[in-house]
């Protein structure tokens, strides 16, 4: 119950933040630009639109997740708004969970609107919906799962470091995670100390690349049901672990 109130308030904060709208406008501009680009190319109009559209949703979604995520907890501590929350019958872990759900909710609404934008652009281009469009929907869902994961580790970082440090770390984590497939193959083939590091990195860093199916989907390929289930499960478990770790740190932390 209290988690819900905190989430709702976090959502309200994000919705009243101008940064959010700037980023959304950029995302729409990018989707629009892919429509224009589609007119000057041949044969790959749909691929281009899907690829660029998904990239825009993911990129701006991740930006929002990181930029709002770093301040989610630290801003409340800095501005001492946390004092009047934690001295109420609210557990610290409830506070963390509420903040997390608030931002994830914001991102869900965001992704929904940007997804609508992409589908409108698709409709405008092809004048009909195809079966393959279902997989675009799945790709958008996967992009949302990426944001769910990014939000979780951003929050974890911000629970023990400054906002700038957290942003840098979160961005690095996201980029490395996007290449986690290569990390996995490196850990399989490398030797010695490199193998140890690559293996640890490959399993600690989230597997963002598994959640990126945009190129396959742009080519009209199907996404297996099992893949959807596995990815969903993975995203939830990984984020859960990160949020629990953030709560653990927050639980023991002094509010200066």
């Amino acid at each position: 119950m209290r988690i819900g109130y905190i989430a709702a308030n976090t959502f309200r904060e994000a919705v009243r933040d101008r940064v959010l709208y700037n980023l959304i406008v950029f995302a729409f501009l990018m989707i629009g630009a892919s429509l224009v680009l589609g007119q000057i190319t041949i044969g790959v109009e749909r691929e281009l639109l899907v690829n660029l559209g998904l990239a825009a949703i993911a990129f701006f979604g991740v930006l929002i997740a990181i930029f709002i995520g770093i301040g989610l907890v630290s801003k409340e501590i800095d501005k001492r708004t946390v004092y009047t929350v934690l001295t109420r019958p609210v557990q610290r872990w409830q506070f963390i969970l509420g903040k997390y759900f608030g931002l994830v909710g914001t991102l869900a609404v965001n992704t929904f609107f940007m997804g609508c934008g992409l589908f409108l652009a698709l409709l405008y281009m092809t004048h009909k919906f195809e079966r393959a469009d279902i997989y675009v929907l799945i790709a958008i869902f996967f992009v949302f799962l990426q944001m769910v994961i990014v939000t979780s580790f951003t929050m974890l970082f911000s629970s023990f470091s400054t906002p700038i440090e957290s942003a840098v770390m979160a961005f690095c984590f996201f980029v490395i995670g996007s290449f986690s497939t290569d990390l996995h193959s490196l850990s399989a083939s490398a030797k010695g100390i490199v193998k140890v590091f690559a293996t640890i990195a490959a399993y600690v860093v989230p597997n963002i690349s598994a959640l990126n199916v945009s190129t396959a989907v742009a080519h009209g390929e199907a996404v297996a049901g099992a893949t959807v289930a596995l990815n969903l499960g993975y995203a939830l478990l990984y984020s859960g672990a990160m949020v629990a770790a953030a709560a653990l740190i927050f639980q023991r932390r002094n509010m200066k």
């Binding site: 109130y5 309200r12 001492r80 708004t81 004092y83 009047t84 001295t87």
Partner: peptide
């Protein structure tokens, strides 16, 4: 904690809320 009230030094509140919204939020919590 449900039975105590606390005013911090130089309080700062969520400035995107109105007084009514803020107090409603705290009443919920």
């Amino acid at each position: 904690r449900a039975q105590i009230g606390f005013l911090p030094e130089q309080p700062y509140f969520y400035d995107y809320l109105t007084a009514v919204e803020l107090l409603t939020y705290y009443a919920q919590l």
